[in-house]
Every structure is written in structure tokens, then in C-alpha cells.
Design a protein around this nucleic acid. Sequence first.
DNA 1: GAACCGTGGAT
DNA 2: TATCCAAGGTT
Length: 370
Amino acid sequence: MPRARVARTPQRRLLAWYEDEARDLPWRKSTDPYAILVSEVMLQQTRVETVIPYYERFLRAYPTVEALARAPIDDVLKLWEGLGYYRRAHNLHRASREVVHHHAGRIPADRAALRALPGIGPYTAAAVASIAFGEDEPVLDGNVVRVLARWFRVSGDPRRSDTRRSLEAVARSLIPAGRAGAFNQALMDLGARVCAPRLPRCEACPVEAVCEAHQAGEEELFPMRAARRSVPHRDVVAGVIWERGHDPWDPDARVLIAQREAGDMLGGLWEFPGGTVEQGESFDEALRRELREELGMEVEVGSLFITVDHAYTHFRMTLHVFHCRHTAGRPRALGCADFSWVLPSEIAGYALSVADRAVVRALCAQRESA
DNA sequence: GAACCGTGGAT
DNA sequence: TATCCAAGGTT
């Protein structure tokens, strides 16, 4: 009786596992380097389940690199709304134009040329080179770091460059010739579905028998990470500024929204204008100061409309939103990229952050019930 | 090297 | 509620 076929090396067992268990993801249906690039940029620091609907909408709107290069950045940002790390959208848009203008519309095929495009770092360059072009380049994302740190008991904080160099050398040495695309994705799927940060399912792991951390019973001790610092809190104020001569209950009343500068946090997104409350400042003073600085206008701050708590990567925020009456000064874009008077119902067409989107929702709900 | 850059799900 | 952290990159 023939023995069950067992792959000889751990790498072959991992590839065999991947053939059976690979997740059915939309970008895996495509071999188009552009589609794969879009998926990899969206997946930066972002969960697969979050990315899927964004990826499908994006590819429908911009099926080719030429289509993306032709698009206005405001449209690209609207499609990116809610996905976070908005600089990725600016950079991907810029990259598409570089590809069209300097690479004859073809995504570069080698790691170094990919790396030169804006928003493409070491991970994304290696991912596109291996998955879209079959280059034998190793990737090092959060999943691969965790899998390899456990498999080979690699100590040291993986954020350190020397630790990363060791991990990359290990990853490179493991790649079966000509199979980097599948092998890299197998490592990432293994990290996402089996070799989880907590409570890894080692009994389901194709490399359990050779995993050094598992043999030592120390899976959860790897990778070694330093503790994080606590994040500060900020009070931020913003105004719903009603057009002069109108009141909130007027169905034709417009409000002022401003566009953030492209290089800033949430760059290119629209918002109810305002800013951070400084030490010793009242909310009223802070809001009037910000509107004077950003838009050159004077307002009378009215009642508190809503507060929104929101956690960003490096600080937490309480956003205090006040109704405001415009009293003097025609608005000018002094500290913002642009501004616009709009009906609350029209704001749906603009790209806003999640926090400001909550304000719009409350505003529209209030007018609905009024 | 370290700070900065969004959001949502899991625990 | 607080913390972690996810197919990272730029400055």
C-alpha cells in the first residue's frame, strides 16, 4: 500500500497547505500587476476583510493604471474615505501618473524600480515583484515576521533593523526557486489564520514539527516586542457655520466645509473647520482663533451641537462641535486647501474622516426630524 | 532611529 | 475601558 504523499521539506509542506487552504481573495483572481499593486497598497496596515469592498469599488472605478492617472485626486480620496492612511491614496495616484508618464503605462517588474515609486516601500516592492512578476524576493510583513520569529526563535525587537535583516535573510533562504509568489502568500496566510499573535493553532500548522518556539513551548514569547507608550488626549473644536441670513431650520441653509492641506494628517479630506484647543484657552476662544487663522472669518459661537470621541494612531481626540453664526469676513483659504458652502445633504459627495462623517450623520438626522 | 500617519475588530 | 495590531511608508 503506497504511503501517503508527504512533502519532504517544511517549505513544500507549507506550499501544499497553501494549495488546500488559500483564502479566496478578489486580488488573487487577477494576474494584472496594477490590480495586485492596488491591493498591496490598500493592505498596508489594514485587515483583509476591511480592504475587500474598497478594492472592488476601486478597481471598478479605475480598472487600469491609465484610468487612475486620469482621475482627479478628490475622486480617488472619496473612494478611499474610511480606509485610513490617506497619504496612501495620494501616493498611489502619483505612482499611477509616474507609471503612465515614465514607464509607458507598465508597472515596473523589478523590486528596485518598484521601490522608487511613491508609497512603495520594501514590503510592497517585494510583494508586487514576487506575486505579479514571479521574482524570487522575500516579503517581510507583520505575519511573516511572527511566523519566522517563532519558527526559528529569532529574538530581538523586529522593529530594529538588525532583527529585520536576520528575518529577511531567513525568508530569502526559504524561498523555493521560482515559487516566491505562492510561498510569500503562504507565509502570510499562515500568520493570519494559524500562527496568530495570541493562541496560535499549532496543531493545524504544516511546520509545527520544525517550529523551534513550538518545541520550546514559547510560541507566544515570539516575536519580542517592546511595550508601547500611552497616547495623549486632545480637545478639538469645530464649527458648523451657517451661511449669513440663514438659520439651522431653514431648508436652504448652507454650511461651510473646508478641505485640509494635502501634506497634513487626513490630507485632502473635507471637514467642519476648527482645530486643537491650546493650553489655557476656552473652547469658544479656540474656535474663533482657528476660524480666523484658517479662513479669515469672524463667528459667534453658539450652542454645542455634538461631541465625538475618536482614537487616532498617536492621540485620542474629543471633538466638540458648535453651531456658529458668521458675523464678519468673507472666507479665504488661508490655512486650508479650499472651502465650500454646501447643503448638509450635499456633504455626502465629499471625502470626510470618520469623526466628521459622524457629525454629518447627526446633522442630517436632525434636519430630517425637524 | 523615532515620530508620524486612520480605522476597526478582537480580547 | 484599554490595549493590541493589521499584506507599512515617509520624514
